[in-house]
Structure formats: C-alpha cells, structure tokens
Design a protein around this nucleic acid. Structure first.
Length: 269
DNA sequence: AGTGAGACCCGAACGC
DNA sequence: TGCGTTCGGGTCTCAC
C-alpha cells in the first residue's frame, strides 16, 4: 500500500501545512494504534509544536519541539486527512490531532500504528531498516554490491525493508517493468548491465511517482492537487489481463509467496 | 540463507 | 436489503 513516494508526498505536504503549529487536542478511538495510554499520550502532545516532518522508508516521523517524535506506519489501507471537524468520515479514524483550526485524521490504521517515542527510541526502531534508495550514498556500486550477496528472487529482495527501505508491492513491479526485467528472476542470473538498468529504473520510477504525488486515492486536504497523481500512471501494478502499454500483450498476474506480481512476459525477460 | 505459513486487523467485496 | 463469509496486504515470527 503506501510506499516511499506516497509517504514522501505526505512528508512534503505536511512540512508545508503543519510545521510550526501546535497540537491543541487529541482523540484516540483505538488504543492499540498508539503505544501508551491515551492520557500520557495526550499530556505529552498537548501544547507541543511540530518542528520537522521527516521520512524513513515507509515511516513518517513527526518531530515535536519537546524532543518527542510521532512515528507513523500506515501499513495497509492507512491514510491521512487534514481537514475540519465537519470532514470527519463515517469510517473510523483511530487517532485525531487538533492542530490550529484544523484536524489531522489518521484513518484506516488496521495494522498500522502511531507511536510516540523519544529520539533515542526512534533510532533504535529504525536501525533495522536498509538504505534509502534515493539517498546520494546509495550508488549503483552500492546496489550492485548488496545484490551480489543474494541468491533469492529479485522482487523478494526489492520489497525487503531490511535490505532496502521504502519499496513495496507496487513499485517493485513498476521498477522491474521499467527496467525490462522479470521480477521473478533469480538474482545471480542478473548481468551487471541489468543490475545497472535496475538501479536507474528505481531512481526514475520513484522520482516520477514522487513528482506526481504517489498513488494514494484520497487527497491530504481540500485543494490538494498533488496527492494521487500517479494513480493512473502505474504501468503494470493491478493491471492483470489488461494490455501492456508498451507492446499490447496482456499483463500477467502471478503469485510469489502470497504476494501478487504483475509483469509483461513480452517486454520483460 | 531463502522460503513458506500463520498471525495480526478490519473494511471491502462477494455470495446467498 | 442484510447478513455472513472471504480476502487482502506489510510486517513479524517461527518453522523447515
């Protein structure tokens, strides 16, 4: 579901929309979503100001001036909405934060969570994540070196958050399609030329998706013209049976350890 | 090390 | 219309 480009879109927009503003109220409808009782949660947050919105992999980090950090993972189906009290959706929003004259809704956090942590706890929690695919330090040589130790299937590696942080089911398929390489390939069979192509496709696909605001269906706020612009730009993901946009052959849908894989057998090999 | 299964959770989609 | 059932999907954990 929400992957790096979606979370990065949220990061950019929230950075503009809520940094500098103060939390005036909190509501927790589902206690499991947070990591403490609602009372201390409210006590720490109430009156605190957002100083920075950051992202690591698929996690969003909302930094507060009291040195605490809200760590958000949307998992599947989670989404955010920044609106007024009248905008409250009929579906449950597990946590809401009142910020200025608006409310930040955390919707659909079924398996997702919003944990309030200290900066030390954050470092601990995020230390297991692999490198950021778009970090300048993540070079083609680094990518190639990481792949060289692996014998498994390409897609499995791409979606492994410990190995590389931020890519999920959709973008792994989109990247492989862009590179013309089957996601089901065994890593040792990849030539160095193919590894280089994969690296550049990863950069291109993630950057394009970020530029168009990712594929989230709901805008972050009224008038948000960015979020979801990548929705109809997916080339293979969720297009099983539909014609490939490059060659017209039907997009194949397969399963790889209970995970869907979409690819074009004609354009990818 | 890689792979697969099961658990987690609940809205959505489906079947009758 | 409405009730019950199934399914999905990221991540963690535990087997093999």
């Amino acid at each position: 579901m929400p992957e790096l480009p979606e979370m990065e879109t949220y990061r950019r927009l929230l950075q503009q929309q809520i940094v500098g503003l103060t939390i005036t109220d909190t509501h927790v409808e589902r206690e499991k979503t947070i990591n403490m009782s609602p009372d201390p949660f409210a006590q720490i947050l109430h009156g605190s100001r957002f100083t920075l919105i950051d992202r690591r992999g698929k996690h969003l980090l909302l930094h507060l001036e009291n040195s605490h950090v809200l760590l958000l993972h949307l998992m599947l189906g989670g989404f955010l909405y920044l609106g007024t009290a009248e905008d409250k959706l009929s579906r449950t929003s597990q946590v809401t934060l009142s910020i200025g004259n608006r409310i930040l809704y955390f919707h659909g956090l079924r398996l997702g969570y919003l944990h309030l942590l200290t900066s030390e706890q954050i470092d601990e929690r995020l230390s297991e994540l692999g490198p950021e695919p778009l970090a300048p330090s993540f070079t083609p040589a680094q990518f190639s070196q990481q792949l060289s130790g692996k014998r498994g299937i390409l897609k499995t590696a791409l979606v492994d958050q410990h190995w590389l942080a931020g890519i999920g089911n959709c973008y792994s398929d989109e990247i492989c399609f862009h590179a013309g390489i089957l996601p089901t390939r065994r890593i040792p069979t990849l030539t160095s030329e193919e590894v280089t192509r994969l690296y550049h496709s990863m950069q291109a696909v993630l950057k394009e998706a970020m530029q168009y605001g990712g594929y989230m269906e709901t805008p972050l706020y009224k008038g948000d013209g960015l979020t979801g612009g990548f929705n109809d730009r997916c080339r293979v993901y969720d297009r099983g049976g539909e014609p490939c946009l490059r060659c017209g052959h039907a997009i194949a849908l397969d399963k790889l350890s209970s995970r869907k894989v979409f690819f074009c057998t004609h354009c990818q090999n």
